[in-house]
């Protein structure tokens, strides 16, 4: 029997080292399933998963969909265009409507921080946060951790440099929490305009230079910089951003020779990462996608098969 004392996965915050290790161990098993010819199991047969995406995301949504299907669940996708959503009220209304259909797990992506947690208070099934605003994206951090652990054999005492738009990144927040919980050393490397206030107290060493921030790093994790933030608002231009913060062969030299290069996708080639690096031998960006399905299988299986085992957190 699985002992996982959480009903929902709303964030990395609140997970212990044991919780995370358990999820990663199960995900390792799920990787094997995904690599078999027969990829379908029956562990969640008869259960219903609803993917409720208020923010478009082909990649994450299909990853969750595939994960549910490989576990034998019935999966329904609901994409709610952001423009038609009237924030709070509609979110609750939608949640209550869906709840009446008796789903077993709701996978939620929303542009507002705290949306997944609000939903979790209203529905009677498990909720998995697939990204809420600039708050958390726990399954991304878990799949990153799985990718690193499989390549490096451990998470403790490795140096991870998270580079780029930390300010707007839920991926960065979840990763900082998870990596700290697992005993890794976390650095952030970015211009000060792309770092949140108080970043130094969030469990990361702060660097403003790639050469210094990447020095001896085991993992270089690049973040996406959105187009609208490139031209003079948060950074002066694509050219200048790439010059100082884009990952190219020269900057990557500062990291360890066997450092992993990661990116949560979708990438802006030539903005935060050079193509030769994204496609190069140190890149594990494709593995991250594979680990994504495995981690999401592990998360849903764990939540649904251990229900009522602990407090309803």
């Amino acid at each position: 029997m699985i002992t996982f004392p959480h009903r929902h996965l709303l964030g990395i915050k609140g997970l212990t080292e044991q919780d995370i290790t358990l999820l990663l161990d199960r995900a390792d098993e799920a990787v094997k399933i995904s690599r078999q010819r027969e990829k379908k199991t029956s562990s969640l047969r008869g259960l219903t998963q609803i993917n409720l995406f208020f923010e478009a995301s082909t990649r994450t949504q299909s990853s969750f969909e595939l994960a549910g299907k490989r576990l034998g669940a019935d999966v329904m996708n609901m994409s709610v265009g952001n423009s038609s959503v009237k924030k709070g009220e509609t979110l609750i209304d939608t949640a209550m409507t869906l709840n009446a259909m008796h789903p077993d797990v709701l996978v939620v992506r929303h542009s507002s921080a705290g949306a997944a947690s609000l939903l979790a208070q209203k529905v009677s099934c498990s909720v998995v946060n697939a990204g809420d605003g600039q708050h958390e994206h726990p399954t991304q951090a878990l799949l990153d951790a799985l990718t690193i652990r499989r390549a490096k054999g451990k998470l403790s005492r490795i140096i991870v440099a998270i580079c780029g738009d930390v300010l707007h990144s839920r991926v960065a927040r979840s990763n900082i929490l998870l990596l700290n919980q697992m005993g890794a050393r976390v650095r952030v490397v970015a211009p000060a305009t792309l770092l949140p206030a108080g970043i130094a107290e969030m469990g990361a060493e702060v660097y403003h230079s790639m050469a210094e921030g990447l020095k001896d790093a085991d993992v270089v994790m690049m973040l996406r910089l959105q187009r609208e933030r490139m031209a003079g608002s948060f950074v002066p231009s694509v050219r200048e951003y790439f010059h100082y913060y884009g990952l190219d062969a020269e900057k990557l030299k500062a990291a360890k020779d066997d450092a992993l290069v990661m990116h949560p996708g979708p990438m802006n080639r030539g903005v935060e990462i050079a193509s030769e690096i994204a496609d190069g031998p140190q890149s594990v960006i494709e593995q991250q996608v594979e680990m994504g399905v495995a981690v999401r299988m592990a998360v849903m299986e764990t939540l649904l098969l251990s229900q009522n085992q602990g407090p309803r957190v």
Binding site: A231, G232, S233, V235, P236, R239, E240, H243, Y244
Partner: peptide, 9 residues
């Protein structure tokens, strides 16, 4: 006064 220039470069 709207967009910063390429200050570093």
């Amino acid at each position: 006064g709207k967009e910063m220039t390429e200050i570093g470069l």
